[in-house]
Amino acid sequence: MSFGSPYVTLPDFAYHRPKSLDEALALLKEHGEEAKVMGGGVGLIAFMKERLMSPAHVIDVKEVPELRQVRHVPGKGLSIGAAVSIKELLEGGTLRGYAVLEEALARVADPMIRSRATLAGNLCEAIPWVDSPPALIALGASVEIAGTGGTREVPVSGFIRGPVDIDLNPGEIVTGIMLPDPKGTLSAFEKFTAGSEFSLASVAVALAGGGRKRSVAMVYGAVSSTPVRCAEAEQAVADGLTPANVRRAADMASEKVECVDDVLASAAYRRHLVKVITTRVLRRMMSA
């Protein structure tokens, strides 16, 4: 992972703009590893400028109608097409019930980028400092993938394998993100940034069910190479959001969540921030 590019130009590539999913898949089949799918292009073009990726074929899916939809699938949840922009998602209460994702997306970069970037793209970039992956993992979201051989669905938690490393094979395309029915899930997102849109630490929390069936997900982003859940912190608030539990969760998270040193922050500061944002997010949820 690097920042910035010595290059001013992009590597040579052929540009395709399919009008249907079948056409997109045919192009992917034809070009295999030589092809990359582009949504908003926010991540891909930066990667291409840095020569982290030099696809000979760029397949722009912004006009693929199947990928432009947001659909409620009865019994499953909300399916968000891969080419839907973050700005579109934030409009009209689409994400009602998914507060954690709404809050995360509302603070992605700036309005100009949000009107270009897609949720699927934000996820597929798989860079550590972006905001949507922890929120999606907390909600138990999965990635809908189509290939010429059919479709498959993988949980977001397994989809991100490492920095800029995702579970997507040549010839496959992410068609959408499936958010399970919220069913009264209480959720929230917090992040701390020090001067740019990239988080130094973020946390996504989702509380579902009640009583013995209560489930808690606390997912930390930007602190290490991939989003990480913290079972100990989840355990600490499993029997309810009380001041003592919140404090214990914050302490546990700060102790257990693996934090790394990188160019943006030290591990020690990140550990402290984990405590701060855990406290903040849970306290906010208590008073919700």
């Binding site: 009264g184 209480l186 509380l207 009640g210 209560r214 309810g240 959001l241 009380t242 001041p243 919140v246 404090r247 914050a250 701060v276 406290t279 903040r280 306290r283 949820m285 208590m286 008073s287 919700a288």
Partner: peptide, 12 residues
């Protein structure tokens, strides 16, 4: 910062 006066149960 961590002081929370009123515990609110999570919405069921």
């Amino acid at each position: 910062y961590g002081r929370v006066e009123t515990a609110v149960k999570a919405r069921q």
